[in-house]
Every structure is written in C-alpha cells, then in structure tokens.
Design a protein around this nucleic acid. Structure first.
Lengths: 65, 65
DNA sequence: GAATAATGTCAAGTATATTTTACAATTAAT
DNA sequence: ATTAATTGTAAAATATACTTGACATTATTC
C-alpha cells in the first residue's frame, strides 16, 4: 500500500524526493521506496521525515482502516 | 533515552515483555531493547505494538522535547 | 529464604533496511 | 521536439534490526 499521505505532505512543502532524502540524511531510493509502500522504514527515519514535513507519526504513518 | 511510555502502556495491560513479544511476533529481547531505548525498531513493529496496547504512534513513539 | 517469574544483557548468527551505481520512464520547461 | 528535472526500478554491497541461546540479576510469591 502506497504512502500517499507522505507524498502529499512532501508536495505541500514543494520538495522533491531528492530534497527530502538529503534533508533526512538518506538516499533518494529510500524515500521512493517508502512512498511506493514496499517497505518498512525505521521509526527514527519516520520521525525525522515527520519533523522535516511538519507532521506527526499518526498523520503520515498510521495505516488507514 | 528509555521508552517509559511503552513500559507504562504495557504495564497498564498487565503484560510481561514476553507476553507482548509473543503478541507482536518478535523476541523478548527486542521488546526489552526498545524499552531500554538503545534501538530503532521498524515502523511496522511499532504499529503492531500500538495496536496490541490500544495506543497510537504519537502516544508511544513520538519523542519528548 | 527458597522457588519462580520477570527483566537486563551479551555474543554470534540471520533477515532485511539502506546505500551505491546505474539506466529507463515520465513530467516540466525552453 | 529537446533538454533538464523528477521519479521508478534493479542488482550488489553494507549496515543494522532482530533472533536464538544462555546466564545473571531483580522482583514476587509461597
């Protein structure tokens, strides 16, 4: 399941995957994979991404029903 | 930094580390290490733990100031 | 106070998150 | 239509989450 909330939040800050990756200190592929939804990032990375995008864990990473 | 919120939530459900570990499908050492704070679990595991304990990511895993 | 349950911790192994490099596909700008 | 920027994706390597097994220590309970 894709993470569209992350994609939207990133777009809302006008950041490319590469911009966000650099800000979060990971590779672009990692951001791409998280948005694509086929993997399971660590919570510290999620927290880092949330802080950069001004969102909370629940807003970006809590699964829909 | 210890995760005391997790420890408290677990105690609130009267579960041992081993009980929670089994419910979450991980080893007791993993739960111990998360509570002790010296590592960085995956978000899927965090979500799983939250569901078992009836809490949200923000309640258990968002860092204090 | 002995026995049992719960927890801390360590070392060695396995699974998997993440990187690097690289190229193809799509979108936006000129 | 071309160029540049953004994104999808894949293979091989590296870092690290997580397991297993084992023992020590701290509560609990009898």
């Amino acid at each position: 399941m894709k993470n569209l909330k992350l994609k939207a939040a990133r777009a809302g800050k006008d950041l490319s995957q590469d911009d966000l990756a650099k800000a979060a200190g990971v590779s672009r592929q990692t951001i791409s994979a998280i948005e694509k939804g086929d993997y399971n990032p660590t919570i510290n990375l999620c927290i880092n991404i949330c802080k950069i995008l001004g969102k909370t864990l629940d807003e970006l990473f809590w699964p829909e029903e």
